[in-house]
């Protein structure tokens, strides 16, 4: 690889891959518990209401600084989940319907506020909110591999990546530290309560973790990809193992792999086919994650559709 190409790679491609993988990793770890609690769609709802939260924070503070946006989005996530519970309970509606009412309404409000305010000028628009802007991340500084760890080069890391790293790091720490608590409250809320682990508050904590990862990932990869990362890697891992700890780490690996592969495909596949330009990286990461999940759903050794039908088939054969 010539120096110029390497420098380009380190400046343009590496930060995008880093951001994509970090976002995917953080979301996937949280997603394991969402899936086991049958709350995968809470991830969906939360990633939609991040937008109104951010817009409101922008309108109130007038800046696009990270902290107010994070707080605004978190507040929106908590309000949304609270409203869903309230409507479900008081209106005697199924969760899905209550969710549909709440997140579409909040998202609609967010879009309206965005269109009516000056937010459009401030790098806030619905397209970015949905697609993300991985491609816009630049790491100005590194010239070769050895330069990556130099302090002055590290200082040039885009803010988004620093925030993603911090958030994903804290998610990893949280999962390790609270593994036992998350496990018991997910498996058996009544027992958790009985043993002094208040399942309701652990549930609220999980919603907050979902909100934090969604906001952090949102800037880089957009809200729809956030949903893909909450669900696809854990669902893939779920097909492959019956051991919770193994499932969690497996999902993390799958997420990082999807991040790297998806970005590389988006950036370089068009060139392989002789066309110019590149494809949307966030979308491609979701597609790669979906493909990996499809492979697992079909060919997983024990729970894949092929193995299952083979098992049923062999049972039938052994009966005759």
């Amino acid at each position: 690889m010539s120096d110029v190409i390497l420098a380009d790679f380190l400046t343009i491609d590496l930060p995008a891959m880093l951001a994509g993988s970090l976002a995917a990793l953080g979301c996937a770890l949280v997603g394991n518990f969402l899936i086991l609690r049958r709350q995968a769609l809470i991830g969906d709802a939360i990633s939609h209401v991040v937008l109104p939260g951010i817009v409101l924070a922008f309108i109130v503070t007038g800046t696009i600084a990270a902290l107010p946006m994070m707080l605004g989005a978190l507040a929106a996530a908590v309000v949304a989940v609270g409203l869903i519970e309230l409507i479900r309970h008081l209106g005697r509606l199924e969760t899905g319907a209550a969710m549909g009412v709440v997140f579409t309404t909040m998202f609609a409000g967010g879009v309206l506020m965005l269109e009516r305010s000056a937010g459009r000028g401030a790098h806030l628009d619905v397209q970015h909110a949905l697609y993300g802007s991985l491609e816009a991340l630049l790491w100005l500084g590194p010239t070769d591999w050895a330069s990556l760890l130099r302090p002055e080069v590290l200082a040039e890391l885009p803010d988004e990546i620093v925030m993603l790293a911090a958030v994903t790091g804290s998610i990893i720490a949280t999962v390790v530290l609270f593994y036992k608590e998350l496990k018991i409250s997910t498996f058996d809320a009544a027992l958790a309560d009985a043993l002094g682990y208040p399942s309701k508050w652990i549930g609220v904590g999980l919603v907050l973790a979902t909100g934090i990862t969604a906001v952090a990932a949102f800037q880089a990869v957009g809200s729809i990809l956030v949903i893909a990362m909450f669900i696809c890697p854990p669902a893939t891992a779920r097909m492959l193992t019956d051991n919770l700890a193994r499932q969690i780490w497996l999902s993390g690996g799958i997420a990082v792999l999807a991040g790297v592969l998806g970005y590389l495909l988006a950036a370089f596949a068009p060139q392989l086919f002789g066309t110019v330009g590149s494809l949307n990286a966030a979308g491609m990461i979701a597609v790669v994650a979906g493909l990996m999940q499809t492979l697992a759903m079909l060919f997983a050794p024990r729970y894949g559709a092929v193995a299952q039908s083979g098992f049923v088939g062999s049972l039938k054969r052994s009966k005759t």
Binding site: R38, G43, P270, V287, M297
Partner: peptide
């Protein structure tokens, strides 16, 4: 046909199909 539940199925389909749509749109832009 898999051990995954409806919520995960819905989430998978909506995000992956949407991702594919975005990829195609980005191709159309060029």
């Amino acid at each position: 046909h898999t051990r995954l539940r409806e919520d995960a199925a819905i989430g998978t389909v909506l995000s992956v199909f949407f991702g594919l749509g975005i990829v195609l749109l980005s191709h159309i832009q060029t």
